[in-house]
Design a protein around this nucleic acid. Structure first.
Lengths: 231, 231
DNA sequence: AATCGTCAACTAACATGTTAGTATTCGGAA
DNA sequence: TTCCGAATACTAACATGTTAGTTGACGATT
């Protein structure tokens, strides 16, 4: 009865376990598997045409990231949101992005500034075209670029790991009228501060920007109570 | 020929895989398995009296954390240090701890302040007794307390994960004469700022303190070239 | 009708068998 | 002696068999 909602692992690269992991992770983050969904190893094996070994490894990694809860000897289900966790993720993300943006403002190269500006222009275009999916993607690229420009290649992945729950919760947010345009303005303020090599201003602009997201997220708990756990 | 250097998994709790993971992780972090050591699944299975499944899962987790490098179809070895990675870890740790200490300074309870003060006194005692192992442990507890007091239970584990390489590299540092005493003073400055609810001063004190560690770590690359990879 | 205990079905966890890719060694040719 | 290549031994990766713990349903008892 359930349609095949997993991206085919044939399209991915790496070990089997790696591909299964990516496929499952994508399904969880995109809310194709909404919180509470029970993951059946057997079904996944059948669906992807692999044995349980790579599936187990994939699930173990998802569990370590907090995307699924595995109930010993019983079942494993897609983890529910908790507003506490979302606030925590927001706090950690802010800590990392503030440090990054300050460092970038201090040491940016012209080439890096150009890349940020180019990304910014793309954002404007996509908002004009009302291509919100494209905008989301470019938005995330913007933040990833900033982390990369710190000169620490792993910083980007740490930040995105820490923000996983935010990314997933954000999927519940319908693009609110006018919000993407505002986000672009805030991004612009950040880039302006970086252009002027002003770390303090860059941090302030980033803080403002990130604060908007958590504000948008807060009402979700009452709007989608089934996706949240009380605790 | 090799003596049994793994802590017995009997002493640990949780699933087999979890226990194996803890045992291996401890061995890597304590430098009992120095960088470059080749991990043989077969030997580990024999030594711990378990099958390859839990060992594989444990190694997969260590690999995800960057503590071991697994060479596909060939071998898995304890990862070498790289000064770039250590600088990166230091940057990320600083970002998190600065955010944490500011938040704690703003919202601390008296009970929390008491706990910090108590930890501080313990540090003084241990340094007086020249119990450096005990001091290291209490030092880490100090930083863990600060992360906990943010009110975000996961923040502590994120911070310690990010600092794994720092923790391991620190093992190479012989307790330098007078350094622990200085560290206690720096900790005291941090707690003083928290006592006065002064986030800015707390951040400054923390930044100074964390800066000392990376300064101590820098010379290691030339002192222990075999433990570092060039790249 | 409600509750409790038993049992059957299902799942993760663990053990073990199999495959395929890598590295090393050893022998032969230059 | 040196260099190259084939064969072998070893490893992680994958598949599959087995165990044990949990859940839910069903029936007996009150």
């Amino acid at each position: 009865m359930n349609p095949v909602t997993l991206t085919d692992i044939e399209d991915l690269s790496g070990s089997l376990a790696q591909r299964v992991y990516q496929s499952l992770r994508e399904a969880v983050l995109s809310m194709e598997y909404p919180p509470g969904t029970i993951l059946r190893k057997g079904a996944i094996c059948e669906q992807l045409g692999v044995s349980r070994s790579p599936v187990s490894e994939a699930i173990a990694r998802l569990s370590a990231e907090g995307l699924v809860d595995v109930i010993p000897q019983s079942a494993t289900r897609v983890s529910c949101f908790s507003m506490d966790e979302i606030r925590e993720a927001s706090f950690l993300r802010e800590a990392l992005e503030l440090a990054a943006v300050a460092k970038v403002a201090e040491q940016r190269s012209d080439e890096q500034l150009t890349q940020l500006t180019r990304n910014l222009r793309l954002q404007e275009l996509l908002v004009e075209d009302r291509d919100f999916a494209g905008f989301y993607k470019t938005d995330e690229e913007f933040h990833a670029l900033l982390m990369e420009f710190t000169g620490f290649p792993g910083a980007s992945s740490v930040a995105s790991n820490v923000s996983l729950q935010l990314k997933r919760a954000r999927m519940l947010l319908l693009p609110e009228e006018g919000r993407p345009a505002e986000a672009v303005k805030e991004h612009k303020a950040i880039v302006d501060a970086i252009r002027q090599s002003d770390p303090v201003a860059a941090q302030a602009a980033m803080k403002l920007h990130l604060g908007r997201l958590i504000t948008q997220l807060e009402p979700l708990e009452s709007q989608h109570p089934t996706f949240f756990r009380s605790r």
